[in-house]
Simulated assay, not measured.
Amino acid sequence: MFANERRMKIMELLEQKTSVTVSELMKRFGVSIETVRRDLEYLESQQALKRVHGGAVSNQKMKRFASLESRMSENRELKRQLAGIAIRYIREDDTIALDTGSTAMELAPLLKEHFRRLTVVTNSPEVFGALTDAEGFELIQIGGQYLRGEKAFYGHMALDAVNRLHVAKAFVFPSAVSLRHGVGVFVHELFDIQRAYIHNADEVFILADSSKFEIAATVKLCDVSPSHTIITDRELPEPIYSLYKKNAIPIVKE
């Protein structure tokens, strides 16, 4: 068994049971203690696990919720990478839905730079405002109750409006992505709107920077699915990227 394959299997074990021992891995793979230690050292260097005495534990943990204001400046360069990848999947004259949040605000200016005619559906007045001077764009602002902390509309009126629409592509920006726990969010008020975007789109794109992988959020939005494309950045550790590919999850990074 090649080293890469063995390391992927270690990651799969940690997905199932959160911790492994050196002796367990030696027995499972029929390798020496030095080989196991090298594997664990490599995976730790990739931030895929944490070594402890006699073995290793998963890095998977519950992500802490941060306000929109703090998220706007957090990992901004990584979010710009995601936005740069996302526009490759958009075509002139597309009808797209844009979720709310800090990554959405990185994507909105690129839409104006790269396209002349789009229909954009969003429940974010910030995204809407950023696109109002794009004369060839048709904008559909989803309204309803206003969630000030997230600068987004939600509620029954907003959900009813989204459910009356069909879009070619939906771009959703979650708080966490995990093979075990699925795609997670913290703001339960926006959950129904995000789910409706996913349900009413021909194609779904999940944009998550590398800091959001293999952690959990309080609300599960959906499973990690082969029918959704995950877009991330070049900082995603290679073992995690390979594990998603092995599970037939479409994942794109630079």
Rank of each mutant, 00 (worst) to 15 (best):
Gly55Lys: 14
Ile87Asp: 01
Arg116Pro: 00
Glu235Phe: 15
His181Ala: 12
Leu49Cys: 05
Met1Tyr: 11
Ile142Thr: 08
Ser67Thr: 15
Leu107Val: 03
Leu43Lys: 08
Ser102Met: 05
Ile140Cys: 04
Thr229Asp: 01
Val204Gly: 02
Thr232Ala: 05
Asp209Thr: 03
Asn200Ser: 13
Cys222Ser: 13
Arg88Trp: 04
Arg7Asp: 08
Ala97His: 07
Gln47Leu: 06
Met11Lys: 11
Leu243His: 03
Thr229Ile: 11
Pro174Arg: 11
His156Pro: 14
Val57Gly: 08
Gly84Arg: 10
Ile240Tyr: 08
Tyr154Met: 01
Gln194Glu: 13
Leu221Pro: 02
Ser124Phe: 09
Val52Glu: 14
Ala66Gly: 11
Asp93Gly: 05
Phe65Gln: 15
Lys79Gln: 02
Gly84Gln: 08
Val252Gly: 05
Arg116Leu: 07
Met157Gly: 06
Asn247Glu: 07
Ala152Pro: 00
Arg234Lys: 12
Asp93Arg: 14
Ser70Leu: 14
Lys245Asp: 00
Val52Pro: 05
Val187Trp: 02
Val172Thr: 08
Ala216His: 08
Phe137Pro: 07
Lys27Arg: 12
Ile90Glu: 06
Ala152Leu: 00
Phe186Glu: 14
Arg7Cys: 11
Glu15Pro: 00
Leu49Lys: 06
Leu82Glu: 00
Phe115Asp: 12
Ser211Cys: 04
Val162Cys: 12
Lys151Met: 13
Arg7Val: 04
Leu243Met: 13
Leu14Trp: 09
Met8Arg: 15
Leu147Ala: 09
Phe153Ala: 08
Gly55Arg: 14
Leu243Asp: 00
Pro226Ser: 02
Met26Leu: 05
Thr95His: 11
Ile193Tyr: 01
Arg51Tyr: 04
Met62Cys: 09
Arg234Asn: 06
Pro174Asp: 08
Met72Gln: 12
Lys245His: 05
Ala158Gly: 13
Glu138Val: 10
Thr119Ser: 09
Ala104Pro: 01
Leu111Lys: 10
Ala66Trp: 14
Ser32Ile: 09
Glu238Thr: 12
Ala170His: 02
Val52Ile: 15
Val219Asn: 09
Pro237Thr: 05
Phe171Arg: 05
Phe205Val: 06
Met1Pro: 10
Phe205Pro: 01
Glu189Trp: 08
Ser102Gln: 04
Leu82Ala: 00
Arg51Lys: 12
Ala83Leu: 09
Ser211Asp: 08
Ile193Phe: 02
Arg91Ile: 09
Glu189Ile: 02
Gly101Gln: 03
Gln81Tyr: 03
Gln16Trp: 03
Glu92Ala: 03
Asp93Trp: 13
Phe173His: 07
Thr119Tyr: 09
Asp39Asn: 11
His53Lys: 15
Ala176Cys: 14
Val120Gln: 06
Ser19His: 15
Tyr241Ser: 07
Pro239Ser: 09
Ile251Asp: 03
Cys222Met: 13
Arg71Ala: 02
Phe191Ala: 10
Ser70Gln: 15
Arg180Gly: 02
Val167Pro: 00
Leu159Cys: 10
Thr18Met: 13
Ile90Thr: 07
Leu207Gly: 04
Arg37Asn: 15
Pro226Tyr: 06
Leu110Tyr: 04
Ile142Asp: 06
Arg51Pro: 01
Phe186Thr: 04
Met105Tyr: 13
Arg76Tyr: 08
Phe186Pro: 03
Glu41Met: 12
Lys245Trp: 03
Arg91Leu: 12
